[in-house]
Design a protein around this nucleic acid. Structure first.
Lengths: 214, 214
DNA sequence: CCAAATTTGTGAAATAATTCTCATAAGTTA
DNA sequence: TAACTTATGAGAATTATTTCACAAATTTGG
């Protein structure tokens, strides 16, 4: 139902939509059923017309004179983002972080099922982590043929991230979440998102060091 | 030495500077000593003049006809970001994620020392994690008076994040890294950065679902 | 049932960020 | 040392994003 009307949607809009969902879910947990763009904006730390414009890319979800029904709006946004379904994912790099993610229940809860764990270390292959047997990274293609995963999660050391990405791309994945602290190069049709909280610490460091530039 | 010349610096520039450092460090590890903006841009997936403009906010670091000396440029950028020093941090919320971060060696390596661990759960108080004794969150102010931390890391459940933030602000912290999946409200002088990799998974989901809008 | 009060959705205006272009400086070679 | 090559730095042009302002839609109260 929420079909986007217009051509190009700013990346920043997508990031904010994720924030809106987060805040709306917390509001819902606290019992709020209806909210207008003004207080929602305050909670999200953005401008109210920003919210309305962001939503307008996908349709009309509000009621004039009333606001937005929280439950409805969550459904509309998650549908717009495509997260109202199950996404099958595989993880490459079963180190400390990889294991922590494999054991993280939230993934399944949010619809991102980890259905495969891969590593190139012979000592790790065969090990069982969170109900999954660790498989050699070279077998990615064959395994994905079976389990139909679409998203790959990279948790290798930086120097092995590009190789992991190559294997994932070859196996037909079209989205990569890269936790390794290095940039990877992939074909145009593959989407990459980087997670590195040191980047955020750097931003804090800068902002604290230069309070005037805020 | 790298003193920023101009008034306002885009947030996006700061984020990119962190990426440049990451890529430059990997280049350095591989033995590259000099690089020009063009190949650096390719490795960072940005435009070359973007890099030159970003750097220009802070000074002139390149040599015309040559490029940038990798080691030098890393030093210049880290200095501009203020990460060429030690930052003392405290962590609030000693759950799974909190413990994982406390045990993460990279923090110290990158100059972000975790010097205090706090939790409001009586069962956790007194426990030792990675050489730190877990202290009651109410004692944040007194402890920060002693250890002089400037950055707080929140790893509580979402419903306790705001309270943790309040305690941190009261204790005089001026930067917060929030891993809890909820937005927090703080005074203007306090900087907040949010880390939530589900937001990135949402972005992947959207981009895979709407390949045309890329 | 109408008038007042809300609050959305949207085009226009204002701001901000990115990319282009080129003069200038540094290095290299003969 | 002069001509040639390379690549930076900075202003101009372009493109993108955010904010404003208001008409249209809806509810509420008398």
């Amino acid at each position: 139902m929420p079909q986007q009307k217009s051509e190009h949607i700013p990346r920043a809009t997508i990031q904010r939509l994720a924030v809106y969902v987060q805040v709306l879910e917390n509001l819902q947990r606290e019992g709020t059923e209806v909210i207008s763009s003004e207080p929602l904006a305050k909670a999200c730390n953005v401008n109210a017309s920003q919210i309305r414009k962001d939503l307008a890319y996908f349709g009309e979800f509000g009621v004039r004179g009333v606001g937005y029904y929280v439950k409805n709006l969550i459904a509309s946004i998650t549908s717009a983002l495509g997260v109202d379904r199950e996404w099958r994912t595989v993880l490459v790099g079963v180190g400390n972080l990889g294991k922590a993610l494999l054991n993280h229940k939230e993934f399944r809860l949010r619809g991102f099922n980890i259905v495969g764990a891969f590593d190139c270390d012979p000592f790790k292959i065969g090990e069982e982590v969170s109900g999954l047997e660790v498989v050699c990274t070279k077998r990615l293609r064959e395994m994905i043929g079976d389990n139909g995963a679409e998203i790959g999660i990279i948790t290798t050391p930086p120097e092995r991230a590009q190789r992991a990405a190559n294997h994932l791309v070859e196996a037909g994945i079209n989205g990569i979440l890269n936790f390794a602290p290095s940039r990877i190069t992939v074909p145009d049709h593959v989407n990459v998102e980087y997670v590195d909280f040191f980047h955020h610490l750097y931003a804090l460091s800068f902002n604290i060091t230069h309070p005037n530039t805020k």
